[in-house]
């Protein structure tokens, strides 16, 4: 049987799909996403907090920290991801010891997504009513108590919906990383699908990615709903 690379029917040659490798590519994509998302969450909240706490300060050091953090965030948020991977190849090699495979994708995934999330975190904190923070100060709360007893819980729905959006773009990034050998569904679609002219593999990889995104979004929405007590339910 000769596979046809053109025409609509080329999408439906399911016998040509190597299901075990499709499965392991899916696992790789999910692994890359979740692992980097955890680190992006931590790093993004720290950066966002740093931006929020140093906003509008008159102290020289606070202003310096704000300026440096904002510069870092703006630069890495602006560099297109595919260029960032290539740019960070030497750093990746030093950090994880390899430039191929799922592990190699992590540094660029994190450095690209953390600034994106940091901005959302900063916005979420700014949305908290200033009066609530003032009330906590009037009760004698320390800065640290305000952070973990007021800022984080009061912005939790926005933090979770932000991490959902970030996670979904991370899934997209992992697919791009796949093209330069990071593994996962993007890699499979590129090598076995595009280069081997097997459109069915590309279609199946796409559908799996869509299912992952869908599950992710639904999960995020459910958690936000559970956390948000601002509307009486």
């Amino acid at each position: 049987m000769v596979s046809s690379t053109t025409g609509f029917s080329s999408y439906f040659h399911f016998s040509q799909v190597n299901w075990p490798s499709m499965w392991s590519a899916t696992v790789e994509t999910i692994w890359m996403t979740i692992f980097s998302l955890v680190l992006v969450g931590i790093l993004g909240i720290l950066l966002g907090l740093l931006l929020f706490e140093t906003t509008g300060s008159t102290n020289f050091w606070a202003r310096l920290v704000h300026w440096v953090t904002a510069l870092f965030v703006n630069v890495f948020r602006s560099v297109p991801f595919i260029i960032l991977i290539v740019l960070l190849l030497p750093l990746t090699k030093n950090l994880v010891g390899t430039i191929i495979g799922p592990k190699a994708a992590l540094p660029s995934l994190i450095i690209s997504a953390a600034p994106f999330y940091a901005r959302m975190v900063e916005l979420a904190f700014h949305e908290i009513d200033h009066g609530v923070i003032e009330a906590a100060e009037a009760m004698g709360a320390t800065r640290w108590q305000i952070i973990y007893k007021v800022l984080l819980p009061e912005s939790s729905p926005a933090l979770v919906s932000g991490i959902t959006v970030t996670g979904i773009s991370l899934i997209g990034f992992t697919a791009m990383a796949g093209v330069i050998g990071a593994g996962g569904l993007g890699n499979l679609a590129y090598l076995d699908g595009f280069q081997a002219s097997n459109n069915t593999v590309t279609l199946v990889a796409t559908i799996i990615i869509l299912i992952v995104v869908f599950i992710f979004q639904t999960l995020g929405d459910l958690i936000v709903d559970k956390l948000d007590k601002r509307v009486a339910n």
Binding site: G131, A138, M139, G140, E154, K229, R230
Partner: peptide, 16 residues
């Protein structure tokens, strides 16, 4: 401050 209480126009409760 812990020995003083304060109340506000918009209550400033923690909604969470």
């Amino acid at each position: 401050r812990q020995k003083m209480g304060m109340i506000f126009q918009y209550f400033n409760l923690l909604w969470s």
